[in-house]
């Protein structure tokens, strides 16, 4: 039989098989900011992956002839107090940024999923206990939480990942639980129960897929936050240890010279700001694309 309402139908099809480029081309018209932000974020990602080929110098190569040199043909973004090329350090720094951002969000999302799912599916004391645990994480801003953690675990990039990831469990768990409660009340879950589908299977096939998807969208939005917190940790000297080319660390190192050689802090600072803004716009765009309510209003 013929399909009545094609408008809904082929929207569904297109959603499922998007080649990124075609998707971007279609979006450029409608949402230029989203496309620009996506391109910038991808450029950073590219820089992180291909840093040794893209960067003009090694991250820790010290040029004794160019200490605190202003931007020039040899050093496009200038050098720092050790004569290290800022552009190269920023490029290598993207590796830390993405490593920490992605890993900690994965930890946060996984932990949040487990706790949120458990809290959403249980009643009574178990649920109460889990939610108070989540409240405890949420009570402190993620930065303070991470600082507390680092002070226990000690500095180092892996510790930063654990600390930031743990601090993110709270907000993820909250949204997952809300989603679980909402999905659980849907008729299709009840219908499966009526057919005798057992509980684990209902969770696995019916609840989980409907929760994981919004969680993934949420995760893209939270990457920016994770990066910001990890940079703040490094800035405070609690995160990545020198001489690693971490952006937070670089901003902190340049702080002493901020009035005479502003580019030492300025270059990594600008890179951080640019990446965070871009990631936020991308995250919002992704959410808008997949949230049927927002999409309907466009």
């Amino acid at each position: 039989m013929a399909i009545r309402d094609l408008s809904g139908a082929d929207r569904g099809v297109r959603l499922r098989a998007p080649t990124l480029l075609r998707f971007l081309a279609r979006q450029l018209d409608a949402r230029p900011f989203f496309v620009i932000a996506t391109v910038i974020s991808l450029a950073f990602l590219f820089a992180a992956i291909f840093a040794p080929w893209v960067a003009p110098y090694a991250p820790n190569f010290q040029d004794p002839d160019a200490l605190m040199a202003p931007p020039s043909a040899a050093h496009w973004c200038g050098t720092d107090s050790f004569g290290q090329d800022l552009l190269s350090r920023v490029i290598f720094g993207t590796r830390y940024v993405f490593l920490i951002g992605f890993s900690s969000v994965v930890i946060g999302a996984a932990g949040g999923l487990a706790i949120g799912l458990a809290a959403g599916l249980t009643h009574g004391a178990v649920e109460w206990g889990l939610m108070r645990f989540v409240d405890a994480i949420l009570a402190l801003p993620s930065l303070i939480m991470a600082i507390a953690f680092i002070s226990i675990l000690g500095p180092g990039i892996d510790k930063v990942i654990y600390a930031v990831g743990f601090a993110m469990i709270g907000p993820f768990a909250r949204t997952v639980r809300a989603d679980v409660l909402q999905v659980r009340a849907q008729a299709f879950v009840e219908a499966a129960g009526l057919m005798g589908v057992d509980r684990l299977r209902i969770i696995w096939r019916h609840i989980l897929p409907n929760v994981v998807f919004p969680l993934a969208v949420q995760a893209t939005i939270r990457i920016a936050e994770a990066i910001l917190v990890s940079s703040a940790l490094s800035f405070l000297g609690l995160g990545v240890v020198p001489p690693a080319p971490d952006w937070g660390l670089m901003i902190s190192e340049g702080r002493a010279f901020i009035s005479i050689v502003p580019w030492i802090s300025g270059v990594p600072g600008a890179a951080l700001a640019l990446l965070l803004i871009s990631l936020s716009i991308v995250g919002d765009g992704v959410r808008e694309q997949f949230d049927p309510k927002l999409r309907a209003n466009r």
Partner: peptide, 24 residues
């Protein structure tokens, strides 16, 4: 008895779309 109930009795919901998991 419950198993036979689950197999022998089927329900068609008022809101058919809501009764089907959109991701399957």
């Amino acid at each position: 008895k419950r198993r036979s109930f689950q197999r022998d009795v089927a329900m068609i919901y008022q809101d058919a779309r809501a009764s089907l998991n959109p991701r399957l």
